[in-house]
Simulated assay, not measured.
Amino acid sequence: MDLGGGSITRADLLGMLQGLHCAWEMGIRKAILQTDSKTTIQLLESAATTHPHFTVVSELRQLLQKDWHVRIEHVREGNAVADYLASIGHSRSLGVHIFLQPSSMLNYWLLFDQLWFAYVDKIKNS
Results as ranks from 00 to 15, higher is better:
Met1Asn: 14
Asp2Lys: 10
Leu3Arg: 12
Gly4Glu: 06
Gly4Thr: 07
Gly5Arg: 10
Gly6Thr: 08
Ile8Leu: 05
Ile8Met: 01
Thr9Lys: 08
Thr9Cys: 13
Thr9Arg: 08
Arg10Met: 09
Ala11Gly: 05
Leu13Phe: 03
Gly15His: 02
Gly15Phe: 03
Gln18Ser: 14
Leu20Gln: 07
Leu20His: 07
Ala23Gly: 13
Ala23Trp: 08
Trp24Met: 12
Arg29Phe: 10
Arg29Lys: 11
Lys30Ala: 14
Ala31Trp: 01
Ala31Gly: 04
Ala31Thr: 14
Ala31Lys: 04
Gln34Met: 13
Gln34Val: 09
Asp36Val: 00
Asp36Asn: 10
Thr39Met: 03
Ile41Asp: 01
Ile41Tyr: 03
Gln42Pro: 00
Gln42Asp: 15
Leu43Tyr: 01
Leu43Trp: 02
Ser46Trp: 08
Ala47His: 12
Thr49Ile: 14
Thr49Trp: 08
His51Pro: 03
Pro52Ala: 07
His53Arg: 07
Phe54Ala: 15
Val56Thr: 13
Glu59His: 12
Leu60Lys: 09
Leu60Phe: 10
Leu63Glu: 07
Leu63Tyr: 03
Leu63Thr: 02
Leu64Glu: 06
Lys66Asn: 11
Trp68Cys: 02
Val70Asp: 05
Ile72Cys: 02
Ile72Phe: 02
Glu73Ser: 11
Val75Phe: 00
Arg76Gly: 13
Glu77Trp: 13
Glu77Met: 15
Gly78Met: 04
Asn79Met: 01
Asn79Lys: 02
Ala80Ser: 15
Val81Glu: 02
Ala82Tyr: 05
Ala82Cys: 11
Ala82Ser: 15
Ala82Val: 05
Asp83Thr: 08
Tyr84Gly: 03
Tyr84Pro: 04
Ala86Lys: 05
Ser87Gly: 02
Ser87Phe: 04
Ile88Glu: 02
His90Val: 12
His90Phe: 09
Ser91Lys: 10
Ser93Thr: 14
Ser93Lys: 09
Leu94Phe: 12
Val96Asn: 05
Val96Thr: 04
His97Lys: 03
His97Met: 04
Ile98Cys: 12
Gln101Ser: 15
Pro102Glu: 05
Ser103Ala: 06
Leu106Lys: 06
Asn107Tyr: 06
Tyr108Arg: 13
Tyr108Glu: 13
Trp109Gln: 06
Phe112His: 12
Phe112Arg: 08
Asp113Lys: 04
Asp113Pro: 01
Asp113Met: 03
Gln114Val: 05
Trp116Pro: 02
Tyr119Ser: 07
Tyr119Ile: 04
Val120Tyr: 00
Val120His: 01
Asp121Trp: 04
Lys122Val: 06
Ile123Ser: 04
Ile123Gly: 09
Ile123Glu: 09
Asn125Gln: 11
